[in-house]
C-alpha cells in the first residue's frame, strides 16, 4: 500500500513536471512577449534595444534552457512577479485561492445536498415517472452552458428582480458576512447547478449497483427493515464510488469555477487565470495554471487513497 502510494505520488509529480514544461512552452507562444509589450508602450525603444533586452532576460535562449532556469528559480521559491499587479505572484495567488475554495466548497455542498437524496430516490424507483423526471432534470443540468446559466441568473435576479448583485465580491464600504453572502448566492447557485446533474446520475447508478449486491439481498431475506437496508447498508456502500467521483471531478469543477468567477467578477483563481492570460501577464498565468493542475492532481491522488481505504476488494502492488 505504501509502495503503491509512493508510486502514484511519483507519477503525479511526473505529470506535473510534464505539464509545467508544456504550459511553459505554450506561454512562450502567447501573443506579445514582455519585451514586445514594453517596446510597444515605449516609443523610445528601438528594435536593437529590444534585442538587447531579450538577450539580457535570456529570452533568446532555447526553450529547454529557459525552462530549466525557470524551474530552478521556482524550486528555490522564486516564482516571479505579476506584471498586472506589480507584486510577487504568490502574494496575488493566496487570497484568490481562498476565494475559490470558498466558492467551490459551498457549491459542492449544495450540489451534494441535492444530488444524494434525489439520486437515491431515483434509484429506489427505477423506471418510474419520478425517475424519468429526475433523469430529465439531471441531463438538462449537464447540458446547460454554465456561462449562459450565469447570464440568465443575472438577468432574472439582478436585472429584473433586483434582488442580488450581478457581480463582485462585496459592497464598497460595507463589511461583514451578510454582505459577502449576498454576493456569493448567484455564483454558488450557478456552479452547483452546473454539477448537480452529473452527481445525481452518478449517485443513482452507484445506489442501483449497491442495491444489487448479495449482502443487500441477504439483509432483506433476513427480515431487516427496508429503511434500514436502504439507508444503513446500501447507501453507505454507494457512497464509496461517490466519494471517489467527488475527488475526480475536481478538474471539471474547477473549469466551471473559472466560468462562474469570470461571469460574476468573483475574484478567484479561475478569473485570475483568465485575466492573466488575456492581460499578457504570463508569469502569473503560468504559476496559477500550474497551481490549479497541482491541486487537481492532488485531489486525484486523494481519490485513489479514499478508494483504497474504503473498498476492501482492491489490493495494491
Amino acid at each position: 500500500m505504501t509502495r503503491y502510494l509512493i508510486r502514484r505520488g511519483l507519477e503525479s509529480l511526473a505529470v506535473l513536471l510534464v505539464m509545467s514544461f508544456a504550459i511553459y512552452g505554450l506561454m512562450g507562444l502567447m501573443p506579445g512577449d514582455p519585451i514586445d509589450v514594453m517596446v510597444q508602450s515605449d516609443p523610445n525603444l528601438t528594435p536593437a534595444d529590444a534585442a538587447r533586452l531579450k538577450a539580457l532576460y535570456g529570452l533568446d535562449r532555447p526553450i529547454g534552457e529557459r525552462y530549466l532556469n525557470w524551474l530552478g528559480a521556482a524550486l528555490e521559491g522564486d516564482l516571479g512577479y505579476s506584471r498586472l499587479n506589480n507584486r510577487p505572484v504568490l502574494e496575488v495567488l493566496g487570497p484568490r485561492l481562498l476565494n475559490t475554495i470558498l466558492l467551490m466548497g459551498l457549491s459542492l455542498a449544495v450540489a451534494l445536498a441535492i444530488a444524494v437524496p434525489v439520486g437515491v430516490l431515483s434509484a429506489l424507483r427505477p423506471y418510474s415517472k419520478t425517475d424519468y423526471a429526475i433523469n430529465f432534470g439531471a441531463l438538462a443540468g449537464i447540458s446547460i452552458p454554465v456561462f449562459w446559466l450565469a447570464l440568465m441568473l443575472i438577468v432574472v435576479f439582478s436585472v429584473q428582480l433586483g434582488w442580488l448583485p450581478a457581480g463582485g465580491m462585496q459592497t464598497i464600504g460595507s463589511e461583514g458576512w451578510l454582505d459577502r453572502a449576498k454576493y456569493l448566492i448567484l455564483p454558488v447557485l450557478s456552479l452547483s447547478l452546473a454539477s448537480v446533474g452529473g452527481f445525481t446520475r452518478f449517485m443513482r447508478a452507484a445506489m442501483m449497483e449497491s442495491m444489487r449486491q448479495d449482502y443487500i439481498r441477504t439483509a432483506r431475506a433476513k427480515g431487516v427493515p427496508e429503511r434500514r437496508v436502504v439507508y444503513k447498508h446500501a447507501l453507505r456502500n454507494a457512497m464509496i464510488p461517490v466519494v471517489t467521483i467527488l475527488a475526480l471531478s475536481f478538474g471539471t469543477l474547477f473549469s466551471g469555477a473559472l466560468i462562474t468567477e469570470t461571469m460574476f467578477s468573483y475574484l478567484g483563481m479561475g478569473k485570475l487565470i483568465y485575466d492573466s492570460i488575456m492581460g499578457n501577464d504570463y508569469n502569473l498565468a503560468l504559476v496559477s495554471l500550474l497551481f490549479a493542475t497541482f491541486l487537481v492532481l492532488l485531489s486525484n491522488l486523494l481519490a485513489d487513497i479514499c478508494y483504497a481505504w474504503l473498498d476492501p476488494r482492491v489490493t495494491y502492488r
Binding site: M19, L29, L248, L289, V296, N300
Partner: peptide, 24 residues
C-alpha cells in the same frame, strides 16, 4: 488518458486558444 481526464481542461484550452499561431 487519466492525466488528460484529470487536468483542469478549460484553463488549458484557453491557453491553447490564446496561442499566437504566428509564433508557430
Amino acid at each position: 488518458t487519466d492525466s488528460v481526464i484529470a487536468l483542469p481542461l478549460l484553463p488549458l484550452l484557453i491557453v491553447m486558444a490564446a496561442v499566437d499561431l504566428g509564433k508557430l
